[in-house]
Structure formats: C-alpha cells, structure tokens
C-alpha cells in the first residue's frame, strides 16, 4: 500500500493512502474528539464532532470519513472548530436528558466525557413532549430512547460486526427512529457494548454497580473455544455485569449472548457449597476431612485389590490448564494409570 505525505497542525505525517484524516492524526499522536466513530466500523459521520479544517476547502470536514491526500494541510484545533464542536454537542444535549445520576453508564459515558472536556452546558434541553417507553426486541437489553444521541453505532455494529442486521435507523418526517427486528435479534448485546451513552443498557442484573464502583477483573470467558477476553464487574462478591475487553486481540470487544448474559450460574443458589457423601442412597453433607479421607481410603483399596487400571479419571475441558495438568499428574503418578481422558470428543 502506497503512502502519502500531509501536514497536520504543522506536523509532517506519513499515512497510508487509504487512511482517513482521523487515522493519520491518531498515528501522529494528535487527538481529535469523536463520538460516533468506532475503530471496527466504517465511518458513520453522524456526530460532526471530528470536524477539522483542510486547506483549500471552504468549510470544515469530518476527519473520520475524509480520506487523506498527498500534500494536504490539516488544522485540528481552532476557535472556529471548538465553537462548531460545542454547537454539535449542544444540539445533542437539547434532546438528551442529563439524568446521569440514575444512568448505568455514568462514569463510563463518552457523551459525559465530551461534555466535561468541551465545557458545554445543557441550557437548551427540551423535555420530550411524550415520553414513550420503546421496548427492545429482547428482555435482556433496555433501550432508553431519550438518551439516544443517534450516533448509529449500534446499528452499524449489528450489521457490520455481527452480520445480524437486526437494528436499523428509519427516518420518518425528518425524525430518526431506532427499529429492532425481534426475529433477527439474538441478544448478543454488541449494541450496548458500542453505545457511547446509556441509551442501551443491560436489563438482567438485579445488582446495580457502576463501572467505577465495582471491582473490575480482566479474565477469559468460560463458554466456548473462542476465549473472549472479558471484564467482570464485581460488587459484594457478585458479578454485576460482563463486558468485552476492547484492547484484546482475540475478540476486540465483541461477545455473544452466552458470554455477556450467561453469568447468572456463578451466583446460583444451586451451587454446591459443601462435600456430599451418599449413605443408604441419600446424600448427606460432610466436611472436607471426612470426604477426602473416604476417597483416599476407597481409591487405595480398589487400587490394591484390582490394580491401578481399575481406576479411571475424567479431566475437564472446563477447568484450567493448571488443573488439567495436575489431574493427569494425579492419575499417572498417584494412582498409576493412564486411564485419563476428557470429553473433548463429545
């Protein structure tokens, strides 16, 4: 791929020919504010926050969707641009309630950050005349219509990343409306992962923990062999929510319905909490010492009576590498058999 040379804020920048001004600026360490732009999506161009001045063009252009050109000269910050950005933001705030105190997204909201960064006030907010609760296609995700800033990331992600295309923005009488096709939606939650505001939120956890309140733990999803990199948000020893980790090379922030919403089993009241020993056909609760002693005694006895190959072990594709390693070590070194396998085949 050939490259072009341009200047951004007086700095000479070499960029790939097919890159946008935004990408070129980013590669040179120059920050341009954005809202609708998302790394994995084609530029949407709906928020107009990324405006920059380009020599020879009368009006500023959106950096996210304007390709670079050889010899181009770009300015990313000026009083005029700052004014335009503030106006764009104010236009959004005219319909976006600042209900941050009751919003799931507070503290992790791109809009909130921008308002803070650019020092905008929401003087122009107009209460919507009719507050309609728009039900989402699935009971797992909630759509707070008033908070939507119509960036359209959600629909783009559903279409471009997931290939599902359940979300669409339809314009009637100049008003954009998010429509959801319940037949297509699989509740993967990609939409809420990319939503920059609290317009799309998860509707599952009874536990409310903002992202800056809970303990955040980076880990790996337990469901399938993709191994998505995820973050558990934990409060009071319960998982309050799961999100995809955007920095990770594996899933780049994406997840599926199991990974995002399948965490309830962790806190299920059906979890085993104590060893159980069967006596006369019924399980009785037991202490660890009692259970472990019984196991050691029985296994030793069977081993001495029938030989080690009369004992078999199933290790587990759900356990960690370390546990699987230890399990086969146990079967081979302690029991003395190679009868160890797991359900990989099943």
């Amino acid at each position: 791929m050939s490259t072009v040379k341009l200047t951004i804020d007086g700095q000479e920048v070499i960029a790939r020919q097919d890159s946008s001004i935004l990408q070129a600026a980013k590669s040179a360490g120059i920050k341009v504010p954005t809202l609708c732009f998302h790394e994995r999506l084609n530029p949407i161009g709906s928020c107009h926050l990324c405006v920059v001045e380009v020599d020879g063009k009368g009006t500023p252009v959106e950096a996210c969707k304007t390709p670079v050109a050889d010899g181009m000269s770009v300015v990313t910050s000026s009083d005029m641009l700052a004014g335009m950005r503030r106006k764009s933001l104010q236009r959004l705030l005219a319909h976006h309630p600042l209900d941050c105190p009751i919003c799931d997204k507070a503290g992790a909201c791109r809009l909130q950050d921008l308002v803070f960064e650019l020092g905008v006030r929401a003087d122009t907010y107009e209460e919507p005349k009719d507050r309609v609760e728009v039900a989402y296609a699935t009971s797992l995700i909630k759509y707070w219509r008033d908070r939507c800033v119509y960036c359209q990331r959600c629909a783009a992600a559903c279409r471009e990343i997931k290939g599902v295309g359940a979300l669409e923005f339809v314009e009637t009488d100049g008003v954009l409306e998010l429509t959801v096709d319940p037949e297509k939606c699989v509740s993967c939650g990609e939409c809420l992962q990319v939503c920059p505001t609290g317009a799309l939120t998860e509707n599952l956890s009874p536990l409310k923990a903002r992202r800056f309140v809970g303990k955040k733990v980076a880990t790996t999803c337990t469901y399938c062999g993709c191994g998505c990199q995820i973050e558990l948000n934990v409060l009071d020893n319960r998982v309050a929510s799961v999100i995809g980790r955007g920095d990770a090379a594996v899933n780049q922030g994406s997840m599926c319905v199991k990974g995002r919403f399948g965490y309830e089993f962790i806190g299920s009241d059906q979890r085993l909490t104590t060893p159980l020993i069967k006596r006369n056909g019924r399980f009785e609760e037991a202490g660890w010492d009692e259970a472990l002693d019984l196991i050691a005694r029985r296994l030793n006895k069977i081993k001495s009576e029938h030989g080690p190959d009369a004992i078999g072990g199933f290790s587990s594709a759900r356990c960690t590498n370390e546990e699987n390693y230890l399990f086969q070590k146990f079967m081979r070194a302690v029991i003395g058999t190679n009868n160890v396998d797991h359900c990989a085949r099943l």
């Binding site: 062999g225 594709a317 699987n324 390693y325 009868n339």
Partner: peptide, 21 residues
Amino acid sequence: LRGQNNVQGACDMGGLPNVFS
C-alpha cells in the same frame, strides 16, 4: 473449531490416555 472453552488446553495438558502434557 474446538467446542468447549478449554478443550485445547485439556488436550495440551495431557488429559488424554496416551500422552503427558
């Protein structure tokens, strides 16, 4: 495409009748 999350690891670690890790 391996099914369960750590099938690969369970095999790698010798959770098989013919091999160690």
